[in-house]
Amino acid sequence: MATTFDRAKLDTGGLTIKPMTPAIGAEILNIDLGATDIASRIPAIRAALLKHGVIFFRDQDLTQEQHIAFARHFGELEVHPATPKDQPNPEVLRIAHGPKSRGQENNWHSDVTWREKPSLGSILLAREVPECGGDTCFANMHLAYERLSDQMKCFCEGLTAVHDISRVFARRLKKAPEELHDQYPPMRHPVIRTHPETGERVIYVNTAFTSHIEGLSAEESRWLLSHLYKTAMDVEIQCRFRWEVGSIAFWDNRVCQHLAVSDYFPARRVMERVTIAGDKPYFQG
């Protein structure tokens, strides 16, 4: 039986919180993430993250070093293979688009599900934003799971999906799939995972990295994945965030999917992301 998680018992420690929608997302007001005493507020921030799935901050004038230091309060950090090897802070992934580079993150996905231990969460900081456009949307994949029929839940809970880095990064990194697989072999994760802190069940397949579901025919796999992908598109389980310079989004990658709206071309949008390492997904029956 699935665990019932009581968000009302989470202690957000006096933070000023403005929920964005009933389903997901909240803005935390009047806080400086670069302050010397920020460590004392980390338990409350973590509770807010678990409660809302994604949390937002405005007017954060952080250096890369401060960005990294804040993220380290939540766990070990990971380095993305798309990060240039010669940059001074390898933990920072710079995502820049403009006249010569159209945004390519405009599909519903969870980050780095091709890892054996996908990330706990990502902390994205806006360095440069277009005059309008370039929002990011987030979806609560626990609520997506809850909206499945009981029969579909039971069927999916016994399935395993394969996640493959080469689906996205073979082209972006200009490497053959086999070369990427030498370092990052395809990974098997449950189609429905259990959130390790809340116990909630979450749909854990995504359009970017999931290649197929094991044990099904190719046609069955395509149909079921398409059905599960569409659950993220329900506007009643989403929120949408409009960026400003100095804005931060911190999302729980174990329960959220996100989509970066690429409607601003040819304007520039420059973001920096620091990612917190997670654990191996599992399903608890």
Rank of each mutant, 00 (worst) to 15 (best):
R41T: 02
F70Y: 14
K280R: 15
E157I: 02
T63Y: 07
H52V: 00
T210S: 09
A2P: 15
D6K: 13
A44L: 04
V92R: 05
I248G: 00
M152G: 01
G134Q: 05
S262Y: 00
F138N: 02
Y184P: 05
D32M: 02
K117M: 09
I165G: 06
Q104M: 13
F155N: 01
V261Q: 10
Q284Y: 10
V202N: 15
V129C: 10
A232V: 02
K153H: 05
M233F: 08
W223T: 02
F169N: 08
D111E: 14
R102N: 12
S119N: 15
R254K: 12
L15M: 11
H163T: 05
A126Y: 03
D263I: 03
L15T: 04
A161I: 01
R172M: 13
P81M: 03
W114C: 06
E197R: 02
P118L: 08
R102L: 08
R188K: 15
I31V: 14
A139V: 03
E91V: 00
A218F: 06
P130Q: 10
R268I: 10
A82K: 05
A208T: 11
G199Y: 08
Q60H: 07
A8N: 14
P43H: 08
A144S: 06
H181E: 14
I68G: 03
I213A: 07
T194M: 06
A23C: 10
T160P: 00
P43E: 10
V92A: 06
I55Y: 03
R201T: 11
R94W: 03
A277K: 15
A170P: 02
H80V: 04
I95F: 09
R115C: 07
L173T: 00
W243T: 02
P196N: 14
R193K: 11
Y145R: 06
T36A: 15
E244C: 03
I38C: 12
M1H: 13
C239M: 09
G121A: 13
